[in-house]
Design a protein around this nucleic acid. Structure first.
Lengths: 189, 189
DNA sequence: TCCAATTTTCAGTAATTTCTGAAAGTTTGA
DNA sequence: TCAAACTTTCAGAAATTACTGAAAATTGGA
């Protein structure tokens, strides 16, 4: 690996964190490299920079594309494929949230939905099912909320985030307004 | 493994998803088993139910305790250690968010903070550093916001989540109120 | 203090995942 | 249609991670 020191520590860090994030070292390193690169890179540039095999690079790029975290482009007069990451960090963040939702949450929701519909065969199973239902309802609520959040435009989202916990005050305020007007600010359960 | 069918599919699912979630199969299975169990279980109960070795169980329980996802207790007149998961699914969710923050985000923030303070050695490094700063600012904003959210009481949180995207309207409304009164609802950058 | 019950550690083995190099496949332009 | 440039696939090697059984350590009561 032959990179300027700042880039190198960034790339190495992403490689190491990869396992915590559900990707492998090479995938993490390549993503990091592309993220800080001022211009798109081709597979050989990456091999050169990271020091992994050409085939490993190919696999890793495929995975990054499956995650929609890198985009492929062609430069005029060059047959090779060039890769880069989206510029907008908010877009990246939203993509990541969507993909993790799909891979890490959706399958569990599906399983829980199925389990909740079964007829419990015993008192033990009845209890288990009730617990699964609690989990299901929580995940579903959080999931829907995340989706709402994701679909906001970045301006609004940033405003909301900077507001932070103060949103409570706003909520309480509008709720008392609602009560005055004879309806509730949030839809009821 | 000898469990009622509903519990069994729940336990097996958590085992399989484990790798996506950064825990191993046994850890996932044991968590699932304890989550649906109507009463605390000791290590031998777990070995019996899951069909793994006693030592593996010991390791897995240690990891679950490190995640603060299971609690240990003693039953009167029994020397063995009994384990259970917290009842409140919201508390579980908050714990999970805190631990993931600590393990998966904090180290990266630390690395980025360091990298941003360095003096760039070239134009390339200057660009890389600017990108890292973008990433840092986004992660920091989201992190702080998550912490605010986590610290809300469950009532408020549920209300906020059910409100979903409608919070935009509330935000716009209070902002125009703020403008009328000559100040902004959110603190400025 | 000693013993029996219980838990933890650890070295070795098994299973899984990652990585590589060689070969096969694809694409583009002459 | 051919050949050069480039990309992908895949079988096996290397590295990592998970698991086991035996032994050591700990704990609580007699």
């Amino acid at each position: 690996m032959n990179l300027p020191p700042l880039t190198q520590s960034f790339v190495l860090h992403f490689g190491e964190m990869g396992s915590h994030w559900g990707i492998n070292r090479t995938v993490g390193q390549i993503y990091a490299l592309l993220y800080v690169s001022p211009k798109p890179l081709n597979a050989d540039d990456i091999v050169e920079a990271i020091g992994c095999s050409r085939s490993n690079t190919s696999m890793a790029l495929k995975e990054l594309q499956a995650w929609r975290l890198v985009k492929l482009q062609h430069l005029p007069g060059d047959r090779r494929e060039y890769f880069s990451t989206p510029d907008d960090v908010w877009a990246i963040f939203k993509t990541l949230a969507e993909e993790r939702q799909k891979r890490e949450v959706e399958p569990t929701l599906t399983m829980l939905r199925g389990a909740i519909l079964e007829r419990p065969g015993s008192e033990e199973e009845r209890h288990a099912q009730a617990r699964m239902k609690e989990m299901y309802q929580l995940i579903e609520l959080v999931t829907k909320w995340f989706a709402d959040i994701r679909d906001m435009d970045v301006e609004t989202l940033q405003r909301l985030m900077k507001l932070g916990a103060q949103v409570q005050k706003v909520l309480q305020f509008t709720q008392s307004l609602g009560r005055l007007a004879g309806r509730d600010g949030a839809k009821e359960e």
